[in-house]
Simulated scan of single mutants.
Amino acid sequence: MTRTVLVTGVRGHVGARVAAALAGDPEIGRVIGVDTAPPPAPRGRGGEQDGPVPGRTEFVRVALRGPDLTRVIRDADVDTVVHLSLVSGSGRAGGTGGGRPAMKEHNVIGTMQLLAACQRSATVRRVVVRSTTAVYGSSPHAPAVFTEDTEPVEVAHHGYARDATEVETYVRGFARRRPDVTTTTLRFANLMGPGVDSPLTRYFSQPVLPTVLGFDPRLQFVHEDDAVEVLCRTAGADHPGVFNVAGDGVLLLSQCARRTGRPVVPLPSPAFRLAGGLARGARLVDFSPEQLTLMSHGRAVDTARITAELGWRPKYGTAAAFDDFLRSRAVPGGPGHLPLAAVDWLADLLTKR
């Protein structure tokens, strides 16, 4: 029986959901959620708050970079750690509030501190880490489908992908130093769902969708419900190794755009990057360099390993996950208002610039 689970990043939507789901599992004795702020109430399908977080999660206000984490793990006899605290965007998107330096410190230094606390613990026996398929990168020279053993064609040099690559390096080092601890690394495709707030969901929520002229990248999504289920399954039993997690199938960016009903503005690559920089500076969309690359070359991964390991398939394919996200983000006023909204969006972008 899993006695005590510690979940990091519980102020995030997925972290809060995972903690609540684990707390509702009768096979788990105790769930402790740690973060710098308490978890929010779960979001409804339109993004509204639905009331108090269910379950019996105990919240402890702790910064990963601080010294108190070791004490929390020791005093609670934690045997399972689920690390969900990586943020994918600086500023408003990531919640770090200090731009890219604070994001890197939170993601990389925070994970180092957490793993150091786990290494010193005499009770920790299982560590689950949320990573991302962004570690594979996006490149015109990349394979059609990445497996867990595929080496990236181009090493990430910045942003969330770089942080995740460094985090996975530290996880491998921890696994070598503590072979008695089961380590699981889950590389998630881009999350989609009613409660997901990410650079990509904000991109698809804009009234106009700029794209890169001449490119139609393949995209893969995983629904938040499936992500929560995989995290709970790997937290409750030993599943060592690295696993890709994504919904079945792919969507082309053009197919996604048609589903949104929003106008598309194809731009030459330099102009697309300029628009991305303007949008990021105006805090409209977090167009990080890795997002810009994804919008040119896309990415798809193989999920056979996680299917074989868990005997499980996601309830939502890539298309179904995206459609569920769109249903929750209906545009007020309907499609007839989109052209005017697009003009307003572009005017706001240029004015803020």
Rank of each mutant, 00 (worst) to 15 (best):
V230K: 03
R162N: 04
A235T: 04
T183A: 13
G195R: 12
D197P: 00
V167F: 02
S198A: 09
F243H: 03
V171W: 06
A161L: 05
V196K: 09
F243D: 00
G236R: 15
L209V: 01
V228P: 02
Y203T: 04
V181D: 07
F204N: 01
D180K: 10
T184Y: 07
P210Q: 08
A246L: 10
N244E: 05
F174G: 05
T185R: 06
Y160R: 00
L191E: 05
R187G: 05
P210Y: 11
V196Y: 11
P179K: 13
D226T: 04
V242Y: 02
A175M: 09
G159E: 12
F174A: 10
R178G: 03
L200K: 00
R187H: 06
V171C: 12
L186A: 06
T169Y: 12
T183S: 12
A175S: 15
V196H: 08
D197Y: 09
F204T: 03
A164H: 08
F174H: 10
A164C: 12
A164T: 04
G195Q: 09
Q220W: 14
T211I: 14
T182K: 08
V196R: 05
D180A: 13
R202H: 13
G193Q: 09
G241H: 07
A161K: 03
R187Q: 06
T234V: 14
T201G: 00
A246Q: 09
G193H: 10
T234A: 14
T182M: 11
D197G: 00
V242A: 07
F243W: 06
N244K: 03
A164K: 14
V167C: 02
V171Y: 05
D226P: 10
A189R: 06
T165S: 15
Q220F: 13
V230H: 07
D238W: 02
V222L: 14
D226W: 13
P179H: 14
D225G: 01
L186K: 01
P240F: 10
V167L: 03
D225I: 03
T185P: 04
G195W: 10
G195T: 11
R202F: 05
N190D: 14
R178S: 06
T165A: 14
A246G: 09
V208Q: 09
D197A: 08
S198Q: 04
A189S: 14
A246D: 06
P179W: 15
M192I: 02
L231N: 03
E229L: 07
L191K: 01
D180R: 10
Q206T: 08
M192V: 03
A246H: 10
D180L: 12
M192F: 15
P210F: 11
V222S: 02
Y203N: 04
A237P: 00
R162Y: 14
S205K: 05
P210E: 08
N190Q: 14
R218K: 12
P194C: 02
E166G: 00
R233W: 08
T211L: 11
F215T: 15
G236D: 09
V196I: 15
R187F: 06
D180P: 07
H223M: 12
D225E: 15
R162V: 00
Y203V: 06
P199E: 09
T234H: 05
L209S: 04
L213K: 11
S198G: 01
A237H: 07
F221D: 01
G159D: 15
V222D: 04
A175I: 00
Y160S: 01
F243N: 00
V196E: 12
T182E: 13
P199W: 13
Y170I: 00
